[in-house]
Nucleic acid binder design. Sequence first.
DNA 1: CGGTCTTGCGTAACCGATTCCGCGACCCAC
DNA 2: GTGGGTCGCGGAATCGGTTACGCAAGACCG
Lengths: 350, 350
Amino acid sequence: MDEIARRAGVSKTTVYRALSGQGRIGEDTRRRVLDIAEEAGYRPNRLARGLRRSRTGLIGVVVPGIEGQFYARVLEGIEKALQDVDHRVLLTVSRGEQEYELVESLLDMQVDGLIVASESDSPDFYERLLRRRVPIVFIDREVPGLHADLVATDHFAGGVLLAEHLRDKGYRKPAFLSVTDRPRPIGSIEDRWCGFRSVFRNACLLHHPFMGSVKRLLREGGDAAPAETFSELCLLALRGALEPLATFPYDCVFAQYDHFALAMIHLLQAHGIRVPQDVGVVGFDDHDFTEYTEPPLTTIRQPLREIGLQAAQRLLRRLEEPDLPAAALRLPPRLVARRSSDPLAAMEQP
Amino acid sequence: MDEIARRAGVSKTTVYRALSGQGRIGEDTRRRVLDIAEEAGYRPNRLARGLRRSRTGLIGVVVPGIEGQFYARVLEGIEKALQDVDHRVLLTVSRGEQEYELVESLLDMQVDGLIVASESDSPDFYERLLRRRVPIVFIDREVPGLHADLVATDHFAGGVLLAEHLRDKGYRKPAFLSVTDRPRPIGSIEDRWCGFRSVFRNACLLHHPFMGSVKRLLREGGDAAPAETFSELCLLALRGALEPLATFPYDCVFAQYDHFALAMIHLLQAHGIRVPQDVGVVGFDDHDFTEYTEPPLTTIRQPLREIGLQAAQRLLRRLEEPDLPAAALRLPPRLVARRSSDPLAAMEQP
DNA sequence: CGGTCTTGCGTAACCGATTCCGCGACCCAC
DNA sequence: GTGGGTCGCGGAATCGGTTACGCAAGACCG
């Protein structure tokens, strides 16, 4: 900038005025400076600007992992919304430990705000976060008793949708397969459970903490693991928890993730139990390829990209008006009905 | 920092010496300053540091999209490797247009280096990029004639693996289904084709530009699209290009992405052609759930996370030694053999 | 024609960490 | 005892935009 100023024979301030379009400046001076800047290939240093203005245009994003399609899609939405207003995403993937340290490192970089999808359930984490008074929007996971912005799927509605669907298809003895490794289900699963139960009063909760082992194996394994994908790991975990299956006492299962739903189907079929004729199975997420599985999987499609978009927009809004009251935005999910829960269709099509 | 200095009754320089551990400083002064800083909850401003040092610890990443699992996994690897050395990922998703503008915006933020997976095939883009003399590592896509670091799967080897596999399974009339929307296949697909042909001299290249329409639909659609997933779009595109199929003159097909492989299977089956008995189908990528499809899909697993890790490490190394000669790192893929290319196994298991 | 306002521009401080230079005190050795 | 070296520390410049303040010249008004 000094360079430009010298070449144009004016002061740095004047250069700034020309570049920013702010302040009073003579038309011919402005044009001359602009020409010289253009020719010199001048580009403003965003660090310096951020330092002075204490607005960087950086948004910190914390997600638990982007290998599954879930957060990847949300992230895509976030990035899109931010790119449209010339903001950038500073991405961190929290891998279990030291989540708060990650957040600190983002704040050190002077991010304007945070979008957080945390798997942490330490209240301490959230309290420290909010004490920082940084504009922040949570996604997906609702933290009970936390007064903060949230954008998520309406999981309750999802539970209702699936329950009604299963009921309409004639199922009567539903099981709700919760797979968390927490002492107590996380908010979203809890919501699904409530929605599910509001339709099926007799729903039974199968609660096994095997998600933990999957995640551990996943962390240790990665690409290097001998032939083990996430799907295979889910299968392994399920088998360990549910065997023997000879007497499966339910006629339908709501697995919380498509991965587990497919593992469940596999397991049932291996025991000669037909899906969907004997037992219907539904999942949640609508991953790629669930329409190509055998049988194709009934599931819930979450408005993932939309969650990202809304979260970003909410955050941007909060940057303008810091005193906006906190709000929770619950986006409606959609039922994707396929054969895994349709005994009639399965009869026709062998 | 001034604050700390005042409280400790020393100069800012001394505070810096205590905090950074550099320079000469008395043991007791050091301890005192550290205590005060701790108590005040002092955290260094990374912007200011970056401004002064012209090293920010930021790495710019440009990917064409993270909704598919491909770049998401690579990204996860990148983030992991960088997090380990306290660097951060500045993420941008290029959506067709103005890729170079995105890169410029990253440079404005003073990133230390770039990791780029570009879909662009304008040589101009790459030239401008290299003229900037920023440390840069390309991933996945090889740009012919470009002298720069590259980390990618060994696509040639992948082509060989699949060809040998198909040959061993008894197939003799192979088709190579290229789906690009380019006038000429991109480097990676080209490599696979060469590898494939080095085994199957009589392989036939089916080249249709329908990937373009899929991407366009995808961009327009997003979550909002009426019931259309990426998979469904692929199916649509394929159908348009290959119908009528009554006389499919090949006995096996190498589709370039799992999505298209499954769409192909669907299409074949809809015409009464059995997979794998009449026609074998193999894909590339090993997405989640390809083991649950009917039939389970034979495919190639790319070392995605490893690509990310290696790319990040390569970049970090180049930051230390800017004059390192450019190199291409090709990571070996792995064959995942399943039923979609195994007529014998299919005989046994109806 | 004096006073007030507007225009166009420059000076200097500032954001917060880093770094160059150098000074006084002290130690050691020749 | 004096020259050379080390130790512990401070002053001030610097990175590159941004902003508060002010000044001189001309416009405009009564």
